[in-house]
Amino acid sequence: MRRSRWAALIAVVAALVAVGVAYAVLNAQSKAAAAPAESATSAQLEEGRKLFLEGCSSCHGLNAEGIDGATVNNGGNGGPSLIGVGSASVHFQVSTGRMPLAGPAAQAPVKTVEYTAEETEALAAYIASLAPGPASPSEEELDFSEADVAEGGELFRTNCSQCHNFAGRGGALSDGAYAPSILDATPQQIYEAMLTGPQQMPVFSNESLTVEEKQAILAYVDDLRTAPNPAGQDLGSLGPVGDGLFAWLVGIVLFVAVAVWIGARVR
């Protein structure tokens, strides 16, 4: 009885895989890569399930349904349901090291990544298989080489800079929360963050901010990160506060040092 049920499942999965492979081969030229959830193999799903049970289920529940009651934010260890969060969310949280969570905090910080790329893919595929949700972007969606940097700048200043600052360095939010620096994030992670709205960040779905607009933003962020600095050494790109500190701690100190030199007695 049991065996047959497994057999049926495997048969169905195998059939799906076969169809998928055939489809992929047929479309090899037109589509470079599909979303991970679509191309998930049964082995990947199984590995994802195993990893989930080992690493995530203690907080998110054995079936990713979440654990009610005290959440991490108020001292407990209950995590939210992951049903329908999609592969984008899982990939973002795990690939930046935010998950698994180290301990209760105002928000999950970026830290050392604990899963390999393959493991992360597997986890994402497993969660995505539970219920449909925002999928990780395809390579095509992430390709911002054709995007308009200037337009990206305008979109960035309208939608992003109020929290992440004009140079993507991040900033404070209320009650101890903060918008992190986005300069170390990969384009995929930035895309996924926009798509899923992790923590306090609002969601920018592909309807509210189209794929082209997201690509323009990615292009602008890439420019922030890689373009040669058009001026001198920056002071953290934090705005006038850094300038003011420098004026006092270096400028005035240097001037006073010269004044002391002028006034000092010579032996």
Binding site: S161, Q162, N165, F166, P230, L235
Partner: peptide, 21 residues
């Protein structure tokens, strides 16, 4: 040696945009 007030990074003013900090 040291950048001050990188106006190019702030972008032009429009009354509905703002930056953290």
């Amino acid at each position: 040696l040291v950048t001050i007030n990188p106006i190019w990074a702030y972008g032009p003013y429009t009354p509905d945009q703002v930056t953290a900090g």
